[in-house]
Simulated scan of single mutants.
Amino acid sequence: MVVLRSILFNVVAFVLTGVMGVGAFPIRWFMRAKALAYAKLWSRAVLWLFRTLCGVQVRVTGLENLPASGPALIASQHQSAFDTLVWMLLLPRPCYVMKGELRRIPLLGPMLVLAGMMPIERAAGAKALRLLLHGTDRAIKAGRQIVIFPEGTRTLPGEHVALKPGIAAMSSHVGLPVIPVATNSGLFWGRNAFFKRPGVLQVAIGPAVGPARRADLLGQIEQSWRGLEQRFGVAG
């Protein structure tokens, strides 16, 4: 059953993405202000397929810790592609910090930029940090909620890696606290995994931490993640 559900999901999601990618051309040419709304529609459709075809129940706790509007910094664990979609549904105006190479994906890449996402070339060193802070200024000024994955890459459920310092620089630069988020999405939609597994996928949103000095803030984010993992069992 898992094999059949996974095949069906992957095929339908691929076709949907292609159709909506082609359908995005009029938005790119004539209705650029609608790009974020279109990206939200695509995310909603893919996650509906994921829940319906793969038998996954998504349980989100701590929604009261998210702002109803206005700027915010969100530091989320990153275990699967699910994490790059769900914030389109949970936030009014999300802005993802994403790998620069994603801009070059046919059809999808240009829409990500048009929707106001923040592509960063991580190999650019000090320049990457300057671009990150510049992008943060623009997003905060526009009232966007910035989502960043401080682990820097997708990890396995329960895997702990050193956090990248970018989130601390962003928080210090704009004087905003950070909202930590833990998840167990990798149990159901694994890193580079073809198979999708049924179950209860948890997204646990904690109270904001910081602003604080870099080492202190990174420690607070990790401590919050560990607490959320224990409290809600999201580590798997």
Rank of each mutant, 00 (worst) to 15 (best):
K34M: 12
K40C: 00
A13M: 11
A24F: 05
P26A: 07
S43P: 00
L36Y: 04
A13Y: 12
I27F: 14
W42G: 00
R32N: 09
Y38Q: 03
R32L: 04
F30Y: 13
W42P: 01
A45G: 01
V11M: 08
A33Y: 02
A24H: 08
N10E: 13
M20T: 10
M20K: 11
V15P: 04
L16C: 07
Y38N: 03
W42A: 00
F14S: 15
K40M: 05
F25Q: 13
W29G: 01
L36V: 04
V12R: 07
L41M: 14
A35Y: 00
A45R: 07
L16Y: 10
V12Q: 03
K34A: 15
W29T: 10
K34E: 14
V19W: 05
M31E: 03
G23V: 03
R32G: 06
L16Q: 05
L36F: 05
M31G: 01
R32T: 11
G21I: 07
A39L: 14
K40Q: 14
W29I: 15
A24C: 11
T17Q: 04
V11A: 13
S43G: 08
A13F: 11
I27D: 00
A39F: 07
A35R: 02
V15W: 10
G21T: 10
L16S: 01
A45E: 06
F14I: 09
L41D: 03
K40I: 03
K40T: 03
A37I: 09
F25A: 14
V22G: 10
V11G: 02
P26N: 04
F25M: 15
R32F: 02
V19G: 05
A37D: 12
A45T: 13
V15K: 06
G18W: 09
G18C: 12
F25V: 15
G23F: 10
F30A: 10
M20I: 09
W42T: 01
R28G: 14
T17K: 02
P26R: 06
T17I: 08
F14G: 14
F30N: 06
V15D: 02
W29A: 12
K40S: 00
G18M: 13
K34V: 02
R44T: 10
A13E: 08
I27W: 08
V15S: 03
N10F: 07
F30E: 04
L41Q: 10
L16A: 09
A24N: 11
M20G: 01
L41P: 00
V12M: 10
I27G: 01
L41E: 01
A13G: 08
L41C: 06
L16T: 13
M31A: 14
V22M: 09
A24Y: 04
R44Q: 10
R28C: 03
L36E: 05
P26M: 08
L41K: 09
V12A: 14
N10L: 08
A39Y: 07
A39M: 15
W29D: 00
A33E: 15
A13V: 14
G18F: 12
R44I: 06
W29N: 02
A45F: 03
V12S: 11
N10A: 11
I27N: 03
G18S: 08
F14Y: 11
F25N: 02
V12H: 00
